[in-house]
């Protein structure tokens, strides 16, 4: 018996060391590519190409960022994205909370029917073309409105919010409030919303990130470049390799031009990801809460 437990504790120590090593390697695998992009964006492009900026800054310079800042397309993309994210997220959060509250009430007569109604499109949807034709017939092609309207609410987030309200707003709270003549509207705005700050943060984050990263909707519904969100501008720079001519046309040598293009790519990745990554450490405990709420009743 004793031998066994000693053997076990040796086994366990070996096992734990092994786990630490594997997790350590995982950590490096995740961090390194991000770290590399960051240092490369601040380094001399020649150094990056010859492997001198693999682990540390090489000849630090702001050349790439200077060229990015002077580019109009990126500015207008940024501005559009901020508009879509701010307006879109506000609408999302408000109407999600509005429907999540009734659905969280066991006494609400429409609870089952409405839940079912919301679940149908998860399994059966019209598809890309019918949706496109619908948007076209509503005269919403090439408008800012479509970027906000087409994702006004997600079923997943409604379920997350509903689970939160079920657990945190007791049914009899309203009953006692209604004795004092409180209507459901007032109860919702004066009691439910203030008590739901945590879930509102979660929703704002989920919706906010999806607006910030939205690409496909813009690709399908927007033609005017002045309406393009950041992601669409990024795709032309990063994927189609179309750094605008103005950004590099003062450089004559082809090779140097290509290096500058690479430098600009590193830079735009950083510029586009900064808002999300800066907010991330502060918000991550909310994200986790949200996923857990969703997993209970997903």
């Amino acid at each position: 018996m004793k031998n066994n437990s000693i053997k076990n504790s040796i086994d366990d120590t070996v096992f734990e060391i092994f786990v630490y090593i594997v997790l350590g390697i995982t950590l490096i695998l995740v961090i390194y590519p991000l770290y590399f992009i960051l240092i490369a964006s601040f380094s001399d492009p020649v150094g990056v190409n010859t492997g001198k900026a693999m682990f540390f800054l090489y000849n630090p310079s702001l050349e790439g960022y200077k060229r990015i800042i002077s580019d109009n397309r990126i500015w207008s993309g940024y501005l559009n994205t901020i508009i879509y994210t701010a307006v879109g997220t506000t609408i999302n959060v408000v109407i999600t909370m509005m429907i999540a509250y009734p659905l969280s009430r066991r006494s609400f007569s429409g609870r089952k029917a409405i839940t079912l109604f919301l679940l149908v499109p998860m399994y059966f949807s019209g598809g890309m073309i019918p949706q496109y034709l619908l948007v076209k017939s509503l005269d919403l092609l090439d408008t800012r409105a479509i970027m906000v309207l087409l994702s006004a609410a997600s079923v997943y987030n409604i379920i997350v919010a509903r689970s939160f309200l079920e657990a945190n707003i007791p049914e009899d709270l309203y009953e006692s409030a209604s004795m004092d003549g409180c209507s459901q509207f007032r109860f919702f705005s004066a009691v439910v919303m203030p008590l739901s700050k945590a879930i509102i943060a979660v929703l704002a984050l989920f919706y906010g990130v999806s607006h910030w990263n939205e690409y496909m909707r813009a690709l399908i519904y927007l033609k005017k470049e002045s309406l393009y969100p950041l992601q669409l501008i990024l795709s032309s720079i990063l994927i189609e390799n179309q750094v605008s001519a103005a950004m590099v046309d003062d450089v004559l040598l082809m090779e140097e031009k290509n290096m500058l293009k690479e430098l600009i790519k590193y830079g735009v990745i950083v510029v586009a990801s900064v808002p999300v990554l800066v907010a991330y450490p502060f918000l991550q405990k909310f994200f986790i809460k949200g996923v857990m709420l969703g997993s209970i009743k997903g």
Binding site: Q231, L234, S235, I237, V268, I269
Partner: peptide
């Protein structure tokens, strides 16, 4: 949280 465009880039 990295967007799919940035990630593919």
């Amino acid at each position: 949280f990295i967007s799919v465009v940035v990630f593919c880039g």
